[in-house]
Design a protein around this nucleic acid. Sequence first.
DNA 1: CGGGCGATTGATTGCCTTCAAACGTGGTGG
DNA 2: CCACCACGTTTGAAGGCAATCAATCGCCCG
Lengths: 224, 224
Amino acid sequence: MRGYEMETLSGGAVAHVQGECISFGPALSLSGARMHYERNAEIFGEGEPAQYVYRVLSGTVRAIRITSDGRRQILAFHLPGEIFGLELGANHSFSVEAVTDCELVLVRRSIVDRAAAENPAAAHAVVKLLASELSDARAHALVLGRKGASERVAAFLLQLAERGASNELNLSMSRADIADYLGLTIETVSRAFTAMERDHAIDLPSSRRVVVRNRAALAELEAA
Amino acid sequence: MRGYEMETLSGGAVAHVQGECISFGPALSLSGARMHYERNAEIFGEGEPAQYVYRVLSGTVRAIRITSDGRRQILAFHLPGEIFGLELGANHSFSVEAVTDCELVLVRRSIVDRAAAENPAAAHAVVKLLASELSDARAHALVLGRKGASERVAAFLLQLAERGASNELNLSMSRADIADYLGLTIETVSRAFTAMERDHAIDLPSSRRVVVRNRAALAELEAA
DNA sequence: CGGGCGATTGATTGCCTTCAAACGTGGTGG
DNA sequence: CCACCACGTTTGAAGGCAATCAATCGCCCG
């Protein structure tokens, strides 16, 4: 999912208002409405009609599912530039909430569907998007199924560092969000951070700020 | 992924040799070569060029990823009628092996790609397939991230019972496969089976045969 | 300065894994 | 046809890692 928007957004030949549309290929950008959501607001809920496709302009959102007894699993975080909310069924199969205050672009799903039906390039862009999300979901399954606590946290940090293309991370999400993404508890996540700092793999200037000091050490931890 | 092939395979208006093609919508079936693989054979490996798309005629296959230190995670099982191997990148991002001896149909990926580029219905079928796999992968992530051992096994059995549309299941996979799918060990899986039999939720006439006696009890276990 | 919330740290529990051994079944060779 | 072997499965006992329970810390905001 990551690389893709960069490519199409920068490669678009059609002039368009920056940020006010979603690109589905170099020759096709669908314009949409800009909306603001505040921290912890629900953007859409599981089971609701899937009426829009979204792109993050600023802020972070989380895609979540809740078990019948209340446990929460975060399926993905979406950062600026990323698209989410694409569904095939009539209804959303998960909920999305704002991790921080954020700006989103909304495009009617009917418009996206029509574009995909009429324009092969648009259809291909949708396929690309889904394939990328699928790949992410599978990588996530590997982490959840077969890795220990500190490996999970290391994988998470490396993933963020790649996405942000920087070793200095501003975590927009709480320990609780990280824990629910990694299938752990907040205490375990916290201990993993502390241990990594002790081992000089990262610095923790504050709880929301992480500096990756030794990416190789993190990668090794992740592999462990 | 499940419902889809049934729909298109039965709804196809075009007459075609049963089993020798892959349907991508009511009006489009791509013919392919039939191949046999024996138990535990590798169908394709992670990193190899993605040259074909596959459909299962008979038998079961497993999609797997291996961590650098050798732990194995099974991402999905594919049963007869299901399609797998669809990738967007040039190379496969996971391996697929035969769980049992099986018959597959192979269609050149270039043909699928071209069909999708030219025929909107075909493109839509591909999107549907990916969306369905994504949905499955996310459900799997919820299980791996937030459920206990017996809940995982219950979820697995219910999933198979739905796919097979029957309460009598012939497990084509070993305890090791189930364990690697659920992120557990073979011993834990075995104990979960035993406990479910003790609680009269299932019968175990043999280790590879499961009769779901009390689906509600299993569903409750799963939710727990 | 005080309150509240998120994060950290510590102590204990519990579930799953690990290690180990016995069991059963299917296949092979005598 | 039976004996034996191999492998997958089950069962048991012990250990380890993360969850839970609990308390303190630190920071942001009022």
